[in-house]
């Protein structure tokens, strides 16, 4: 067997998160995972399958359906010297514990004048596109990114799914990691030694000279697909994966816009008052004179998520929509 081959393996996004959890539980005895169905069921999305057997019910702690109770308990445990990873099954249910996240976790350090930091990691499944209708398809990362005091991570790649958790656990403050449930089955090749990654920088996932497509989470793949289509027409799109929505790494996208002179933001969240509005504003503030065209946005339509497949597809941003918009932007403002 050749060493190089041994060092690479193909794993899914789900397995990458599981591997990160396993590593954290092995490396730091203060770490424990708690949430609904994380233990005996193996995790709603099978992310924590097998961990109960390996680490026992104290550290892979099943909770009742008490989001506010167990997220608050996570805050308390973090204050008490533990490093809890709390799984909120999906972001939709996080509204039941929004009080604990926003009124407690995000403000304890500030409100106590710097005395009590909360080293808590919350993992949440997010995103639409699986015909789960209005109450199970939300993308609220951008909404949470409005709140000072917490950090918002959005791993779009298997590498980030593998690497962001450990870095988040080293952070002294609360970190929310949004895992897009549509990505759990996605495969990628990682090095055997794949490990922690930074959580403060956006990444250019595809270089291009004609336009910057700024996006995050599952929309990254729609943007990359659109970029391939556009390349056949001679339009080279640069695709930026934000990775972290708070604090926002504006330097990476402002530098990109300075190279391409056009910007399109693709966001599964809604347009009004969303993170796309924030990014557009940052471009106005930081790169206005670099622009050859108005900043454009492709967001979810302003409606609760419909169930029917064709309707859901129409509501969510799609690669074809990105292609159309970019074509227009490049040709109209060539």
């Amino acid at each position: 067997m050749i060493d190089g081959e041994q060092a690479l393996r193909t794993i899914t996004y789900r397995e990458a998160v599981r591997e990160a959890l396993r590593e954290a539980l092995q490396k730091d005895e203060r770490v424990f995972l708690m949430g609904e169905d994380v233990g005996r069921y193996g995790g709603c999305f099978a992310v924590s399958k097998g961990l109960l057997e390996a680490f026992g019910p104290e550290r892979i702690r099943d909770t009742p359906l008490s989001e506010s109770g167990f997220v608050g308990a996570g805050i308390g445990a973090a204050l008490g010297g533990m490093r809890p990873i709390v799984e909120v099954m999906t972001v939709n249910f996080s509204l039941l514990c929004a009080d604990q996240i926003i009124n407690n976790a995000a403000v304890y350090l500030y409100m106590s004048g710097g005395q009590f930091n909360v080293p808590l990691v919350i993992r949440l499944a997010t995103g639409g596109g699986r015909q789960l209708a209005a109450q199970h398809s939300r993308s609220l990362e951008g909404w949470y990114a409005h709140i000072p005091g917490i950090k918002i991570l959005s791993p779009a790649t298997v590498e980030d799914a593998r690497g962001m958790l450990w870095t988040a656990l080293q952070d002294p403050d609360p970190v929310l990691i949004f895992e897009n449930s549509g990505l759990y089955n996605m495969e990628a090749t990682l090095g055997a030694d794949a490990g922690p990654v930074d959580i403060h920088q956006a990444r250019v996932r595809r270089a291009g000279r004609d336009i910057s497509i700024i996006t995050y989470s599952a929309s990254l793949y729609k943007a990359l697909e659109a970029a391939e289509t556009l390349a056949k027409e001679g339009i080279e799109a640069e695709v930026i994966d934000l990775r972290t929505l708070r604090p926002l790494d504006e330097r990476t996208f402002l530098e990109s816009v300075a190279r391409t002179h056009r910007a399109l933001i693709v966001d599964e969240g809604w347009r009004s008052g969303g993170i796309s509005a924030e990014i557009a504003s940052r471009i106005m503030e930081g790169a206005f004179y670099e622009l050859d065209a108005p900043v454009a946005r492709l967001c979810s339509q302003e409606a609760p998520m419909p169930y029917a497949k064709h309707m859901e597809d129409a509501v969510l941003p799609q690669a074809a929509g990105i292609v159309d918009l970019v074509r227009h932007m490049v040709n109209a403002h060539g």
Binding site: E58, G72, A73, I75, G76, A77, L79, G80, G81, P84
Partner: peptide, 13 residues
């Protein structure tokens, strides 16, 4: 809930 968590941390440690 915070009190429950503080107590949980004591128990686990």
């Amino acid at each position: 809930p915070i009190a429950v968590g503080l107590a949980l941390a004591d128990k686990m440690q």
